[in-house]
Structure formats: structure tokens, C-alpha cells
């Protein structure tokens, strides 16, 4: 089977620091691929390279067999890749609805939309409310409240809801449950499985081994800027995985 998203020989340096060192990457259609690795292993940098937030110094990326060259996150979004970044990428003073539709606002039908370019705020608010309810974020009282007045977990919930709602080819989640409570993390895991059920593959970066082993189809172990190995969670235990990513045990050769 041909990977939906494939990268070969990615390199990214920040000055003298090498963040990605000849990294390879494969995402199969319809799967949940977990990416694990130590702090500083280059997981986030590699994910940013495939989501357009970082332009790699070398290497090639293919989406559905076609080579792509994202210059910005906007390019990646237009290609159907939606990402939740660790820093969440939200504008604190704007409302939840404004943030969810940032860069893809809905306009009113007719002349008010085409000539006056007026935004369809009721429609955007209704959509945002619906998506947050789907995620069980019922502690958010007002869809028009500024994002800065939300708790860290609620903000993360909004970011995840945004990605899940708009991703059409690939959804990338960088530590999506890091700031969430028990109930909200459970909902995020369910949401990830819902997204897969819609046939959209997911890249999940996480330090939470129980979550990774519960939902991932395959686990990509990242170490020192490159892919160390890819393992099947059914064949290995959590302590094996931790041992691979920290270098305590030699990694299996066949991936």
C-alpha cells in the first residue's frame, strides 16, 4: 500500500543546532500513527515540516503520491492537512468562533457577502458551538467569549475541535491531551477514533504511553532527529517502546 503522506531525507538546521537529521516518515491511509520520542528528539520540528510551518533545508515530501512543497501553513491547510500545534496558535483577544474560522471565514449569502464582504457570524457561532458540544466541552458557557478567558484545557479543546472539523486529508495533533482533564482527554481520544472512522489518517504526537498504546495502529519512534524504527503496539510493551526511544535497548531492524 502506498503511504498517503511520505517524507524522505528531511533535514532542518537552526543555526548550529540540527533538529531533523535525514528523517524519513510514512503515514498509511486510514491509520492512527503515534510519534514518540524524547524531549528534543525533533518530533515537533518534523511535524512542522510536513504541516508547512517550517520549510525543510533538504528532503522531499509526497502527499498521495504527488510531491509537495509547502511554503506556509496556509498551503498545507489548502491541501487538507490540519494541525494542532503545541502552542495552540490562537488569538487570545478574539472569540472562540473567530478563532475556529480564522483564515476561512464564512460570508453572508448574497450581496452582503459578495459586495460588502460581511461575515456570517450566526452561522460560524452555531458551527463552533456544535463542534465544542461534540467534544464534550460543555464547561464553555459562551461561544463569543475571548479565548484568553478560557482555561488551558478548554483552549486545547477548541484547537482540537478546529482541526477535527476542517481536516480533510490528514489531521496532525501535537500533544493534544497534555493540558486536558480525564474527561476531556477521553473525549479527544474518542474524537481521534471518530476522525479515523471518517477515513482520515491521524498523526498523534504524545508522551502519554497508555493513550498511545490504546489507539495507535503503528508507533513511529523518533530519536536524535531521525526515525529509529516503527513498531506495532501489539508486538511490544510500553517499557520496550520507552527503552527504544531512550536508547536503552537496540531497536528492531525490520520496521
Amino acid at each position: 500500500m502506498e503511504p498517503i503522506l511520505k517524507a524522505r531525507g528531511l533535514v532542518k538546521r537552526y543555526g548550529k543546532v540540527t533538529a531533523i537529521d535525514q528523517a524519513d516518515f510514512d503515514l498509511m491511509p486510514g491509520e492512527i500513527l503515534a510519534v514518540i520520542g524524547d524531549n528534543g528528539a525533533g518530533k515537533s520540528s518534523m511535524i512542522k515540516a510536513v504541516s508547512g510551518a517550517v520549510v525543510p533545508d533538504a528532503g522531499k515530501i509526497w502527499l498521495e503520491g504527488r510531491e509537495i512543497n509547502f511554503r506556509s501553513p496556509i498551503d498545507a491547510r489548502e491541501a487538507g492537512i490540519e494541525t494542532v500545534y503545541q502552542q495552540l496558535a490562537m488569538s487570545p483577544a478574539l472569540s472562540i468562533a473567530d478563532n475556529m474560522f480564522m483564515g476561512r471565514e464564512l460570508r453572508k449569502p448574497g450581496v452582503r457577502g459578495s459586495l460588502l464582504r460581511q461575515l456570517d457570524k450566526p452561522a460560524m457561532q452555531a458551527f463552533a458551538r456544535q463542534k465544542l458540544n461534540d467534544l464534550g466541552l460543555s464547561t464553555i458557557q459562551n461561544i463569543n467569549q475571548a479565548v484568553e478567558s478560557l482555561s488551558g484545557g478548554q483552549r486545547q479543546g477548541v484547537a482540537v475541535a478546529r482541526a477535527a472539523a476542517f481536516g480533510s486529508k490528514v489531521v496532525i495533533l501535537d500533544e493534544p491531551t497534555a493540558a486536558l482533564g480525564v474527561k476531556e482527554s477521553r473525549k479527544v481520544l474518542e474524537l481521534i477514533q471518530d476522525v479515523r472512522a471518517r477515513g482520515i489518517p491521524i498523526i498523534l504526537i504524545s508522551h502519554n504511553m497508555p493513550h498511545v498504546f490504546e489507539i495507535a495502529d503503528r508507533i513511529h519512534v523518533h530519536r536524535l532527529g531521525k526515525r529509529l524504527c516503527v513498531i506495532d503496539p501489539k508486538d511490544y510493551t510500553m517499557s520496550d517502546a520507552v527503552a527504544f526511544m531512550t536508547g536503552a535497548i537496540e531497536a528492531p531492524k525490520a520496521a
Partner: peptide, 29 residues
């Protein structure tokens, strides 16, 4: 006032002023 409140351009002006990096990551040119 209309353009800043009720058009996408206006929302983008606020987003860029708030946090340009976040605005770029969430799809604002």
C-alpha cells in the same frame, strides 16, 4: 469600524496584532 468588525480582513488585523505567529499558523496571510 464596519470593516474591522464584520469582515475577515478586520479579524485578521486583530489576529496579527495579537500574536502574528499564532495568526500565521492558523492560516492568516
Amino acid at each position: 469600524a464596519y470593516a474591522l468588525r464584520s469582515t475577515a480582513w478586520g479579524r485578521h488585523v486583530y489576529a496579527v496584532g495579537d500574536d502574528p505567529e499564532a495568526a500565521a499558523l492558523s492560516g492568516v496571510n
